[in-house]
Amino acid sequence: MTQDIVIKAENLDLTFQTNDGPIQALKDVDLEINRGEFVSFIGPSGCGKTTFLRVIAALEHPTGGSICVNGMTPDEARCKRAYGYVFQAAGLYPWRTIAGNIKLPLEIMGYSKEDQNKSVRKVMELVDLEGFDKKFPWQLSGGMQQRASIARALAFDADILLMDEPFGALDEIVRDHLNEQLLKLWSRTNKTIAFVTHSIPEAVYLSTKIVVMSPRPGRITDVIDSTLPKERPLDIRDTPEFLEIAHRVREGLRAGHAYDD
């Protein structure tokens, strides 16, 4: 069963040296993420959820403990292009069309022209953006831009998708729609997704595992395995089961804040 563990963190510590002295962004973080899981990280600002995602992506380096991604160090995994990363802002290049933006990682990774086009067609279909390939980013709405950036992260078919508050800047209606789409995409592709969010309903609706974090120092206070079925219509959010999990998340967040007025 060990090969099913995609991400494994043990006693992970990360301390930033700032002008105001050291800041402990992560302390004693232990976590295992299995293949095909959808894991949400939730917590207030400064709890280290984004930092943890960046450690998985080798954009930050831990100061203590160990972390494995696909059985390698994060740096090796990055070099092997093990993951696609979606940032809070879509960050599409204004000088490239949507198709051009999705091709960007493929060009860098040296795909042939033919494979590039094939891949672009496939992922644009996955995020429901067919027919928009020749449009420029400014011609698309914020939600569509974010979908294009998800397509860009999926283009090179990495099996891990790291998402850092990808829908944080969008309004609730668009967000609901994208959440639904993301679940469909996840069940179709079987990717392992690590998802950072501020929103309790979003975390509960999407995840198979919810990691509740709290700040100063950033640490995990609760890990909740979701009992919701894999098939989730939007109105599952009104069921007692859903509300119970949401309640437990809220309790976890409150506990983390108890001594922090």
Binding site: L59, Y85, F87
Partner: peptide, 15 residues
Amino acid sequence: MQLDLMKTYNASNRQ
């Protein structure tokens, strides 16, 4: 963010 994105693709300086 855009520079980080390049890094996640393991892009070279030249790229």
